[in-house]
Design a protein around this nucleic acid. Structure first.
Lengths: 224, 224
DNA sequence: TCAAAAGTGTTCACCGTACACCCATGT
DNA sequence: ACATGGGTGTACGGTGAACACTTTTGA
């Protein structure tokens, strides 16, 4: 499943099924796994017919569904993946495929509605303790723009002040040195930031029960 | 895969393969998925030949492996599960099956070594922000006993003082009111605790980027 | 009275939030 | 000047870690 923030709302890419079962309902892109193919490779192949795979800034495995009744034609086992596209891109989609706000899903095929639900929960949790934001935000951005992305993805308000402070303190964001021009109504020009790393990193590993801190050690310690 | 704390060390249940491939190597229990079976049901069925399934206090899905080269006989797709057994139980195991400390694994079959590794990472993370401890600890226990379980599972020292404080503050532990008898060398009798909930709950949902706190609201609010 | 084991009190540093205030720009 | 939007300073509450101290038992 591919998620993207568009017009300050989080959207999921769905295609409209023409054939039974679930004709007319909206489904996540996907398809059968080929003989000598990795699941990851299969996902890339399936998505290639929808978007340019290079636009996916992040891809990770979600859960595997096996309920025999999830497909009326018979038992299927499906492994869901989560892909993220930065908000500055606008992929060309096929006729039958469009973006849908995740908070207003249409009638979905199979168990895809609930799959989107668990993907959302996963994304929201990871926004809190990793740097996944990099996969939703443009290459460079102002704090106000980043805030809009986070608000869309999280589904609730976040203040620019604290977002900036938390992400800077963790070293997730880095200043580019560039500034934007002021808007039409004036205002102080905003600084441009980028994510320090373009790959997933856990930035807040343990809230509690951390390993004990290394004591300096009185004897046999290294000399600075 | 089944994990249990035994003699203050975290162990994983493995069986010794007799046939090729990987004859003589140790493998995780598992097997093919039947026609009209859920993955969860299949896991229960596979494990039934090893332990009493009712002894599993917790079971959750891990990741699905699909690398075509993971089995030399040809491509297989395998979904790993993590099961936990409380430390007070001692299941009867078949001849070819034994417990192995996770920090000293023998030669393992397929990619099972790395599967154990990711299971460990998952368990350790969840010990920090959920109440999973209930699935590793006996029904009732002293803080000292619980500490031993946590130390074994986490792989590093934890103080009884802080463990108690954190888990009590979160409402994860509840006092039973009972006391133990003092040991042979004296000492204050320990209070007995139990986990407040017997099912998985997230007790520390967001470290950062929490939803804004509800302001009391000056107008239209409810009257206490 | 002493050692052993359990539990409590206290201190400290840090983190996330809230909110006031200051800065830079256009009109 | 003033409005507008961006950024910083500061204070507060909470939390986890560390560690000293008290409580309760047996010898």
């Amino acid at each position: 499943m591919v998620l993207q923030v568009r017009s300050a709302r989080l959207h999921v890419m769905l295609w409209r099924r023409a054939a039974e079962p679930f004709a007319g309902a909206w489904a996540l892109p996907g398809g059968p796994l080929l003989a000598d193919e990795t699941l990851g490779a299969s996902v890339a192949r399936q998505l290639a017919s929808k978007v340019e795979v290079r636009q996916l800034a992040h891809l990770e495995q979600l859960e595997t569904r096996s309920d025999p009744s999830r497909d009326p034609r018979g038992r299927t086992v499906a492994t869901a993946y989560l892909g993220l596209i930065p908000s500055d891109l606008d992929p060309v989609l096929p006729e039958d495929t469009t973006w849908h706000p995740v908070d207003a899903l249409p009638v979905t095929a199979f168990d895809h509605g609930s799959v989107v639900g668990s993907a959302l929960a996963r994304l929201r949790a990871k926004l809190s303790y990793t740097n996944v934001g990099f996969a939703l935000a443009p290459p460079t951005f102002t704090i106000a723009e980043l805030r809009e992305v986070y608000v869309a993805a999280l589904g609730y308000e976040v203040t620019a002040t604290n977002l900036q402070r938390v992400l800077l303190r963790r070293g997730v964001l880095a200043a580019t040195g560039e500034h934007t021009a002021s808007g039409r109504a004036g205002g102080r020009p905003a600084m441009l930031y980028r994510f320090a790393s373009p790959t997933l990193e856990v930035t807040d590993p343990f809230a509690v029960l951390r390993p004990p801190t290394e004591r300096p050690g009185r004897a046999g310690g290294s000399v600075s």
